[in-house]
């Protein structure tokens, strides 16, 4: 079975204006709308397109998080994933622990491809995919803007500082998605109902043998400084002057 595993994280919806807790210990999560991490939605879309092209047989969506993360996995099932697995924990899961958990799932599921978002919009760590590839000892193609499967390999176009580069990786491999890879489909209401019949397994974190928890200590969370008022410059010379004054030129 040619299988694709997609990692899906429950995060604060990107449309929510984040508020920092007054005591600086984090951001307000209570009662805030949660969604699938947008980059993971792109990952899932890519997996579904690969399957729809007949280049994979099954798409499995996996998540690590609280019981409520089932809601995001249900979204993934409604978008078209065939089944889902939630590794349940209320602990903080840092990228390394997440990669370790995903590794246990990879060993069990034997996917040909694992697709993850390049980062999650809550902590913006951008590490899990790379760590998973290293632990699994398989190739990685990060920040993908195009993915083509070619037999036992994948051709992946990556967004890099200099522009685009295309690399070939042997399968199985890890791909992380960039924003321009695709435009994820909208969930269709009938598919929400169909998704209820799809399997969603819930396993406890302990059963994976991985222990989560904070290894990094967060000292203080502060909102960004409000943007200071802009100034209008008259012409290019004025712009150059202003940039020089700021030490930017």
């Amino acid at each position: 079975m040619r299988r694709i595993m997609v990692c899906v994280k429950r995060v604060v919806d990107y449309n929510v204006r984040i508020r920092v807790k007054p005591d600086g210990t984090g951001v307000v999560l209570d009662g805030v709308k949660m969604s699938v991490n947008p980059f993971d939605e792109i990952a899932l879309e890519e997996a579904l397109r690969i399957k729809e092209r007949g280049e994979a047989d099954e798409v499995v969506a996996v998540s690590i998080g609280p019981d409520d993360a089932q809601q995001q996995l249900r979204t993934a099932l409604a978008m078209g994933a065939d089944r889902a697995i939630l590794v349940k924990t209320t602990d903080v899961v840092e990228p390394l622990a997440a990669a370790q958990v995903f590794l246990t799932l990879v060993q069990k599921e034997q996917p040909q491809l694992v697709i993850l978002g390049k980062q999650a919009i809550d902590d913006d760590a951008a590490q899990t995919g790379q760590m998973l590839a290293a632990l699994w000892d398989r190739p990685q193609a990060t920040f993908a803007s195009k993915v083509e499967l070619a037999g036992a390999a994948a051709l992946v176009t990556r967004e890099v500082d200099a522009g685009l580069e295309t690399i070939e990786v042997d399968l199985p491999a890890v791909v992380t998605t960039d924003l321009r890879l695709n435009e994820p489909r909208y969930v269709k209401l009938p598919d929400i109902m169909k998704a209820k019949k799809k399997p969603l397994d819930v396993v406890e974190l302990a059963s994976t043998g991985v222990s989560a928890g904070e290894t990094l200590k967060s000292v203080l969370v502060e909102p960004p400084k409000p943007r200071s008022k802009g100034v209008m410059v008259k012409d290019v010379a004025g712009l150059v002057d202003a940039l020089k004054k700021k030490g930017l030129l």
């Binding site: 449309n15 089932q70 809601q71 249900r74 979204t75 969930v187 209401l189």
Partner: peptide, 20 residues
């Protein structure tokens, strides 16, 4: 009878994304 709370959540989630 074909629905449950999870369907209703899904309906709202989907509306949200489209609206945004």
């Amino acid at each position: 009878a074909d629905h449950d709370r999870a369907t209703f959540d899904g309906v709202l989630d989907g509306a949200w994304r489209l609206a945004v």
